[in-house]
């Protein structure tokens, strides 16, 4: 390996984005050779053209900001409710025992199944979509926090107690950091579900947003726009992941270190 190649191989951006290059090339080739009928499958060039068109008419930015607004409210309320609720339930053995079965059940009622009744209550509105996203985020989060608190070794609590920590200090110094990895994975699971709920709600409620855009395009058979919608969703999640989730998890979960030495194979 030359010095340059080695340095490039080590850069995070290249390692992350590199694999997409051959995939896009393959995609382009498949479309060029018309392996699938063009009514079902278009190449990256058609998608780019579509992107240009939608940007020009201001449709994509509008839908994008609608989707992001819903997601933002959903996440804000979801975390605002889920985090305190999780720690409240987790800290009290009685509360844990009484609510655990209900939590499991409400988690099991797939969030999307709430959409019809929510539409009955709130109509086809931002409130309806936000409700479903909040719901999807709260339950996995609470379940993860409770599980995380249970996993904090009791010796750690005892050690802190014996060193003179009070109840609140035990909570802030031991319970919170000890359960953090689990909280992080709960946030990730919750956002993953919330994200899907957003798309489903937009398709079903059908007034605006990326999900709506895709389904609307599907109705008129505009494959390029459907593809574009999927790519936008993927990139959005990637950005959310890279900017928000990954740094948080990096500071907690990944410190355990699962990287294997390269020479050691």
């Amino acid at each position: 390996m030359t010095g340059l190649a080695r340095r490039l191989g080590r850069s995070g951006a290249v390692r992350t984005l590199g694999p997409f290059v051959p995939v896009v090339a393959l995609w382009w080739l498949l479309a060029q050779l018309q392996v699938f009928p063009p009514a079902f499958f278009v190449g990256p060039d058609a998608v780019l053209a579509e992107l240009g068109g939608l940007l020009e008419r201001g449709i994509l930015p509008g839908y994008l900001s609608d989707s992001l607004t819903r997601l933002w409210y959903g996440v804000l309320f979801g975390l605002g409710i889920g985090l305190p609720l999780g720690f409240l339930v987790g800290m009290s053995p009685v509360a844990r025992r009484l609510t655990w079965p209900l939590l499991l059940f409400f988690q099991a009622v797939a969030d999307i199944a709430w959409l019809p009744i929510v539409i009955v209550w709130f109509g086809f509105s931002l409130t309806a979509v936000t409700f479903v996203i909040v719901y999807t985020i709260v339950f996995p989060l609470v379940l993860s926090i409770v599980a995380g608190i249970e996993q904090v070794p009791p010796e750690l609590v005892r050690a802190a107690r014996s060193m003179g920590a009070g109840r609140i200090q035990v909570f802030t110094e031991v319970i919170v950091p000890g359960s953090l990895p689990s909280v992080a994975s709960g946030v990730r699971t919750g956002l993953g579900y919330g994200w899907r709920a957003l798309v489903a709600a937009e398709i079903i409620v059908g007034t605006s947003g990326i999900g709506f855009m895709m389904f609307d395009a599907r109705r008129v058979g505009d494959v390029a726009e459907v593809f574009l919608g999927m790519i936008v969703l993927g990139i959005l999640w990637y950005a959310l992941d890279a900017l928000l989730l990954a740094p948080f998890e990096h500071a907690t979960v990944e410190r355990w270190g699962l990287v294997r030495q390269s020479a050691a194979t």
Partner: peptide
């Protein structure tokens, strides 16, 4: 990286294209 991208998309986001195909 490809898989992480795909996991984010998996499921519901494919409904439009799946029903088209």
């Amino acid at each position: 990286p490809l898989l992480r991208f795909s996991v984010a998309l998996a499921g519901i986001a494919w409904i439009p294209i799946a029903t088209l195909w």
